[in-house]
Design a protein around this nucleic acid. Structure first.
Lengths: 249, 249
DNA sequence: CCTCCTCTGCTTATTACTTAAACTGTATAA
DNA sequence: TTATACAGTTTAAGTAATAAGCAGAGGAGG
């Protein structure tokens, strides 16, 4: 069953085994000096500290004093390792059962996800390319979908809504990291650079120049769920209310 | 002025010159066999046809029958070329003046942006990393910000709203491309793979299994502005109405 | 006209990376 | 004891970015 029909998985068949299969320890031969878990943890630490571009098979192997090729005993390739890193960095989603309504649940969900992206900024970038979801990632989606159960949304609408929220959280995380400049390797002066460009070409960008005068591109106000998230949740609320044919609740 | 203070631009100073400076033809020496414009156009064609990973300096130079290094006479490096590719592929934003209200304007804006991403799928991925915005990209932001002028939103709220919409369009484009599988190089069976995983582990993902039964992860319905976009715009509408202290309009 | 300087386009070489294939040595099962 | 599965290394092939420097074109200054 675990090794069943890889056809649907396209070129990602090797990731399926690692992400979704069980890992049994070998019976014979010398003791492994490493493990998938240790490798993944180390790779994550590197990506956290120096960004995903700094992460390479050489770099990880060097961390153990091993040769690059030794890693290939544990993971089939770099892309598969990244897939594992993403799922491990995400970790399990929060339990939302205790929260009263779908909106509070999604607020908590979004906040926690943002927290993860904040700790592992590279994840926000890495999840945007074509990839197979791991168990943890799918559990996050599941948690958000469960929050929307009973709201009257159809299955397609539910996953659409989850997608809207999660893509917002992703861009929110990237933006706040850029603005805070707490990510070492990224441009810490993003806001200043944009401001300078708009300033210099203010004739071409009047609305932005105006917006800048009333606070745009300034530091992010981290207090509570911010404007964008409220927008997204309000929007979902409108659609739910529509379904119910009643008022917003 | 054009060559003023590169300090704010951090490591992206070389991109500023290319994206925002004027390009004057050289006065002396042999006639250039290439030009920045031709190189960028060719690079875009390659990325369109084969995806961004297939794009390399070698590949582009090979297209002209030149060596890799010849390109470095025109662009300082690969990242700067990608910056140029993005801004060129985006092109100028649509004129939204003729449309009646902010919502229609943003609907058109989002649709056109989606169209661009659809034509150049790699752009949707490329714009997510730390980058300097080019004139066209900033013009898109300007157009959307202008649509929200007079709604009562503050400058910060306006750019937040634009960010929410554009990040949604980005993820929408990636999702619909994955589902349609019209992007050659990406996993065309994304939906099928997810479906298979949820099916197999349906005990762990009951809400998703349920959602799947009522249409989730199926093909995207391309008719009109879809669920996610309506959510986002409704949400912005709620915030605007709040500002105005009146009903949704 | 001649010379020089600049700029183009090319060659060579360096560095960094992924990964295939074959090899060496080890620990366990039979 | 021996066959086998496995760990980690060596070697090497292939791709890619890009630094450094060379050959030659051709306008500018004398």
């Amino acid at each position: 069953m675990a090794e069943a029909g890889n056809g649907v998985f396209g070129g990602r068949a090797r990731s399926v085994e690692l992400l979704w299969g069980r890992r049994e320890p070998p019976k014979r031969g010398p003791k492994p000096g490493l493990s998938v878990e240790v490798i993944v943890r180390t790779a994550i630490a590197i990506a956290d500290a120096e960004g995903l571009p700094a992460f390479s098979m050489q770099r990880v192997a060097g961390e153990f004093g091993f040769t690059t090729m030794s890693l290939y005993r544990y993971v089939p390739g770099k892309t598969e390792l990244i897939d594992l890193m993403i799922d491990t960095a995400l970790g399990p989603p929060p339990d939302l059962a205790e929260y009263p309504d779908w909106r509070t649940k999604l607020e908590v969900w979004a906040g926690e996800l943002h927290e993860v992206y904040h700790r592992h900024l590279w994840v926000a970038r890495a999840v945007t390319d074509d990839r197979l979801m791991g168990p943890n990632e799918l559990a996050w989606v599941e948690a958000a979908a469960r929050a929307l159960l009973g709201t009257g949304l159809t299955g397609g609408e539910t996953t659409d809504a989850v997608r809207v929220v999660s893509s917002h959280v992703r861009s929110w995380a990237q933006y706040s990291a850029d603005m805070a400049g707490d990510a070492g390797m990224t441009g810490r002066q993003w806001g200043a650079a944009i401001a300078a460009l708009i300033e210099e070409h203010s004739a071409d960008y009047p609305a932005l120049a105006e917006a800048m005068r009333s606070g745009a591109f300034g530091p992010v106000d981290g207090s509570g769920p911010q404007f964008g998230l409220r927008c997204v949740l309000d929007g979902i609320g409108v659609r739910i209310a529509e379904r119910r044919g009643g008022s917003t609740g």
